[in-house]
Amino acid sequence: MDQIIITLVLISLGYFFGRHAEKKHYRHIIEREELMNALPAMASRFPPVGEKFEQTLVSGNVVIANDYFKTFAAGLRNLFGGKVSSYETLLDRARREAVLRMKEEAQALQADYVFNVKYETTSISKGKNNRLPMIEVFAYGTALKKITP
C-alpha cells in the first residue's frame, strides 16, 4: 500500500514538474532557434562551389532525462505496444538543443554555415532497473567560414 502511494506521489510530481520544465525548455529552444536560423545547418557533404572556406569541426551534446510520469507511461505502453509518445518530446527537445549548441559553437567561430551535420543518440541508463532513462544526443558538423581574399 505504501509503495502504491509513493508511486502515485512520484507520478503526479513528475507530471507537474516535468510538464512545466518541458514547456520552459521548448520556449527557450524556439527563442534561440529563431536567432540561429541565420546560420544554416545542412546535412549535405559538399560545400558551396566556387568559394574558399576555413573548416572547423563543431559539436554540441545534451543529456536529458525523462520524468517519472513519462517513464511510467512508457512502461505501460511497453505492455501493449505501439507508439511511445512520451519519448517523442524528450528526443525532439534533445536533438534541437544539441543542434543549437553546435550552432552556438559555430557562431563563436563566426562561421557562415555548418555542413555535413550528423547525429548520434545513446541511451545511457538502458537496461538498468529502477533508473529513469537518460538519453544523450550528440550533433556534429563542419563549420564553414568564408575566406575573404
Partner: peptide, 13 residues
C-alpha cells in the same frame, strides 16, 4: 543557403 522556421508539433504527438 538558409534555414527557414519549421512548424512545431511534427515530431511529437
Amino acid at each position: 543557403y538558409s534555414n527557414p522556421k519549421l512548424p512545431e508539433g511534427i515530431n511529437t504527438s
